[in-house]
């Protein structure tokens, strides 16, 4: 039990998916324009990562690795992820028609979000158990959520700032991310 808590904290904060392992940086930068969008993006990432991980772990362990086909992991996992996203899009259309518009835009973009693929690949390549993988995935998603939502908040705060011209746009956001990464270092002692 404590080991799982350790894994959870590890994935979400200490080795934050975006700020520590540097997956999904693109998604965070583009997705943090508005806090509302960031929230929806986070939810989508958590759900997709969780579902993908649940499916890809057995496939990776029992199918690919057993037959020496581990080099096919990226391809296969991507296909699985894409299928899951397609299913989710259909689901949203049916069950939440009001939100269809927004989520049908967000979900496909997740396929090329390296945060999701990164986490599910790591789970299998490092050789975590199923339970640990699942916890890692959900918490990795939470870590992503933390990064993108905090960045959205800060972005709103600095919207009218006098940032020097060359730094306007992506550079200043990278500086903010760097400062966030420094702040998250505080968690390192925890595990």
């Amino acid at each position: 039990m404590t080991k799982l808590i350790y894994v959870a904290i590890m994935s979400a904060f200490v080795n934050n998916v975006v700020l520590g392992q540097m997956f999904g940086v693109n998604a965070v930068i583009r997705g943090s324009e508005k806090i509302g969008y960031a929230l929806r993006l986070s939810l989508s990432v958590i759900v997709v990562t969780f579902l993908s991980s649940v499916v890809t772990w057995p496939v990776g362990e029992f199918l690919l690795n057993r037959f020496g086909l581990s080099f096919l992991q990226p391809m296969v996992f991507l296909i699985i992820e894409a299928v899951i996203v397609l299913v989710l899009v259909k689901l949203v259309k049916v069950k939440f028609p009001k939100r269809k518009q927004v989520y049908s835009q967000i979900l496909p973009l997740i396929v090329i979000n390296s945060a999701v693929l990164g986490v599910i690949l790591m789970n299998v390549q490092v050789g975590y158990s199923f339970l640990r993988s699942t916890v890692n995935s959900v918490c990795g998603g939470l870590g992503f959520a933390a990064a993108v939502i905090i960045l959205a908040g800060v972005r709103e705060r600095i919207r009218f700032n006098d940032v020097p011209k060359p730094f306007e746009g992506v550079p200043i956001l990278l500086v903010v991310s760097g400062l966030m990464a420094i702040a998250f270092y505080g968690f390192t002692g925890l595990v």
Binding site: I35, I150, G153, R157, I182, G186, F187, G189
Partner: peptide, 24 residues
């Protein structure tokens, strides 16, 4: 941070994270 992590800089890191959360 202090009780379950390393002692160094717990206040400082806490304040930084507080700063990050302040806009929210």
């Amino acid at each position: 941070f202090r009780l379950f992590g390393s002692a160094a800089g717990s206040v400082a890191y806490a304040i930084l994270i507080g700063n990050l959360l302040a806009p929210l």
